[in-house]
């Protein structure tokens, strides 16, 4: 990892330890698959408009943690709060979700958008339909309302002219931008990015990061798991370093990247 970094615009936003009430709070989140413990109690606060990146070696649980935040993975212990209100709780592995818990999970996912490593666009729908299906089927908007939202979101990611296309005819970077538009169309409080650029080449990665940067400038709250150190350093208000299922260090990107407060970071950055 070279010491040279692109010049970083000074950010006005302060870390969560500042005065503002956190938008999303995670307390003591624990997750295991059978006997294998993946997350050993993760705490995290994210304020409105903050961009948090999560770094860590493979297998440290960062992707699992992100997936727990919108309950694509059920965690066993802990609490997740949105705007101070408890939106999900840990549940033992052997107990199935009750109806209320399922409804609560659905309500939670409405407020938390997610972008996946492999885009996961719906291949049987056009680009436009991909973005419209959420507002239409979930938020029960009318066709014209959903169309307007889709037009705005696709224009935001610079792909409105692709709206009649088949998603699989698009490049990876374009597909990922459509996936971002699809998530944004639900007007979420928080956006989660699960290694959104790991399947993309550098040029496509730049395009996707351009969109993420724009969202950050608009004040979207985002949590990103990424392997792109330059980008993490550039975009984060705060960087979280995870190791073996716990948060090993949190701080400004400068603190994490330059001071390397725990030995794990040293090792991690050298290898990268």
């Amino acid at each position: 990892m070279s010491a040279e970094q692109p010049p970083r615009p000074p950010t006005a936003k302060l870390p969560a330890e500042g005065g503002a009430a956190p938008l999303m709070e995670v307390e003591g989140l624990k997750k295991s698959y059978g006997p294998k413990v993946v997350l050993r109690g993760v705490d995290m606060q994210v304020t409105r408009g903050e961009v948090v990146t999560i770094l860590g070696p493979n297998g440290c649980g960062k992707s699992t943690f992100l997936r727990c935040l919108n309950l694509l993975e059920q965690y066993q212990d802990g609490v997740v709060k949105l705007k101070g209100e408890v939106v999900s709780r840990g549940r033992p592995e052997d107990r199935k979700a009750t109806e209320e818990e399922q409804a609560a999970a659905q309500a939670l996912r409405l407020r938390v958008g997610m972008v996946f490593q492999r885009f996961n666009l719906f291949p049987h729908m056009t680009v436009l339909e991909n973005v419209m299906v959420g507002p239409k089927k979930v938020l029960l908007r009318s066709h014209s309302e959903a169309y307007d939202v889709a037009e705005r979101m696709l224009s935001k990611v610079g792909l409105w002219e692709k709206h009649p296309c088949d998603p699989l005819t698009l490049s990876g970077g374009q597909q990922q931008r459509v996936a971002i538009a699809r998530a944004l169309a639900m007007n979420p409080d928080v956006m989660l990015f699960d290694e959104a650029t790991s399947a993309l080449d550098p040029v496509m990665t730049r395009d996707v990061f351009g969109v993420v940067r724009e969202l950050a400038a608009e004040g979207m709250t985002m949590i990103l798991v990424t392997h792109d150190m330059d980008f993490a350093r550039d975009i984060s208000d705060r960087t979280v370093f995870m190791e073996e299922g716990v948060v090993a260090a949190v701080g400004t990107p400068e603190y994490i990247f330059d001071q390397r407060p725990v030995p794990g970071i040293q090792k991690f950055l050298q290898r990268g």
């Binding site: 399922q102 996912r109 958008g113 996946f116 996961n120 049987h124 996936a179 699809r182 639900m186």
Partner: peptide, 27 residues
Amino acid sequence: VDKGQREAALSLGMSERQAFGYVILPQ
């Protein structure tokens, strides 16, 4: 049908039934 399709549908706030009907079954 890729597992990610169900996850993408759920992450948009669809119920399991909606994910099945709108996303998985047509594919």
